[in-house]
Amino acid sequence: MKVVLADYGAGNLRSVCSAFARAGAEPVVSTDPEQIREASLTVIAGVGHVESARRGLAANRLDDAIAARAAAGRPVLGICVGMQLLFHESDEGGHGLGLLDGPVRRVRAPRVPHMGWNALELIGEPALLDGLDGADVYFAHSYAAEPTRDIATAEVDHGGRMVAAVESGPLAGVQFHPERSGSAGAHVLQNALNWAGQW
């Protein structure tokens, strides 16, 4: 399956790329809106701030390409800041793509960043997290999306409950790093490829 990782110039996508290759996909990193629109699955990953990520996407009109895909019912997966990017305004400053309703808030916990392995508590039967209830996955973030609609598919406990994943039609997001979450992470990416194949 052709997986296209949106390149917005922040950080390094090598680890995400390799993880998708291990899962059996053919990942490419691209700044081309045409490729982003046409991919079997488009992935937004990377590090940094929502605002700089959004500006990076806009520089090559990848933001429009992602919105067009979503409107056409083609799957998009956001990882970490890529998940936050699907939402609205962020406490960190700036604004996401606004494809999902809700703000991005600073994590409220005794220790921030929320850094390390934490157990997923599933809500319902999410396609991307099938078989992963209670699985430990790796988090490294200081901000988290707070969806206003009922789209959370997993939470974690870190001095309070936090949304760890969402699914809403062709849009999915995970706040953790599947590419850095060992075999549980590989399982998530495998699920993501199966899910993407159904759209």
């Binding site: 390094n12 090598r14 680890s15 790329c17 390799s18 993880a19 790796y138 490294a140 790093h177 590419e179 850095r180 979450s181 060992g182 075999s183 992470g185 590989a186």
Partner: peptide, 11 residues
Amino acid sequence: VERAAEELTIP
């Protein structure tokens, strides 16, 4: 670092 990023599955 490049090799580690590709081959490792933990941070």
